[in-house]
Amino acid sequence: MRVWRQLADFVQRHGAAALISVHDVKGSAPREVGARMVVRPDGAFHGTIGGGQLEFRMLDIAREMLDAGRGPARIFDQALGPDLGQCCGGRVKILIETFDARAMEELTPLVAAEAEGRLFELECRMEEGRVKRDFASAVGDDRWTGWRETHGEVRTPVLLFGAGHVGRALVLSLAPLPFAVRWLDDRDDAFPAHLPPNAKAVRMWDPEAEIAEASPQSLILVMTHDHPLDMEITAAALRRDFPYVGLIGSATKRARFEKRFRELGIPEETIRSLVCPIGLPDIEDKDPAIIAASVTAQLLQVREHGGVAQKFSPPAASNDT
C-alpha cells in the first residue's frame, strides 16, 4: 500500500484522515514496526496493523481523534496479553496521527517520493504535538533526536508471456501483491478490458527484445498459446541470469524442450534451473485459478528468499499442466 497517496486521497475526498503506525515492538506481535493503516472519518480504512483486538481498539481511537478535529499525535503502549487478551504475548507502541487539508503541503512531497517506486527514509520528531518528517540526510546530524521511518515499496518485475486462461488468472492473483507485471501477448484481442493497477498489457512484437531489455531482477513466466514461441522465449530467458524462469507444461514438455536447449548450447546447469512445471510441487490441480495461486506462492518464495543473488531451485516433484 502506498500510504501517503492513500492518506492524501482520503484528505482530499473526505476532508480528513488518520494514520495508524506500529511505532515499536517488543516480543511477539501481529505485525512489524512500520505496518500502517489509513482511516477515513467514516471508519473505512486501508491496510492493517494485524487485526484482532489491537486493531479494533486503535480504529476506535482513530475515529474519536478524527471526530475531535485535527489535534496532537498520540502514542499508545499496549501489552497484547494483559491489555487486549491476545496470545502474541508481546508489547507494541502504536502512533496515531490525524491530517486535514492543512497537511496537503507536507503530504505532497511524500506522495511524490512514494510514486518513484523505491524505499526512502524519513527522520521524524515531535514538534508542537505533531510529527515533523524530513527526508533523511545521507550525511546525518549528530544533533538530531527522534526516530526514523522507512516508506515506499519496491515491486518485483514480472514478465508474463501469454494471456490465456492461466495468464489471466495469474494477473488477478498478483494484483494485490508487490509485483509489477508486464503482460505480453502477440494477439490483438488477447487482453481483458480492465487490468489491475500493477499490470501493463503489451502487444508483443519482438519477444527476444523484451527479454534483452528486461531488468536483471525480473521473474520470467512463459505460457503462450504456441509451443515454438514458448521455446523461443524460454531459450532467450535462460541465456540471461534471471532469478526465476518458469515455463508452463508437463514433464514431457520439459524433456522435449531440454533436448532442444542442449542443441542450442545452453549449459546443463542453466537448463536445470528452469522451473517446469511451474508452481508448488504438491499442488496438482490444473484449474487455472489454482495454478495461478500455486505460482503466486512460488513467486513470493523467490521474492522472499531468492532475491537477485541466486537462481530459484525448481521442485523435484511436478504438477503437470
Rank of each mutant, 00 (worst) to 15 (best):
A236Q: 06
V166F: 01
A292T: 02
Q6S: 15
V3L: 09
W205P: 00
E127G: 10
D77Y: 12
E106M: 08
E258L: 10
V275L: 05
S294L: 04
T156L: 11
V308T: 14
I94M: 04
A214Q: 06
G27Q: 04
P277F: 02
T108H: 09
L66C: 12
A8G: 08
E32D: 15
V154P: 13
A212D: 13
G306R: 07
G164W: 00
K259G: 15
S294Q: 03
I266N: 06
S137V: 03
A251W: 11
G90N: 01
A29M: 00
A212Y: 08
D285H: 05
P30D: 00
E213P: 00
V3A: 01
S294N: 06
F56N: 12
E263T: 11
P176R: 05
L280I: 09
A193N: 11
K259S: 13
H225S: 09
A163M: 03
H227L: 10
V22H: 05
G164N: 09
R168I: 01
P82R: 10
A292Y: 07
A289M: 07
L299C: 04
P30T: 02
A8K: 01
L80K: 05
L247H: 09
Q78G: 00
R240E: 12
A193M: 11
C88N: 06
L172P: 06
M231I: 11
A44V: 04
V154W: 13
F135H: 10
I248C: 03
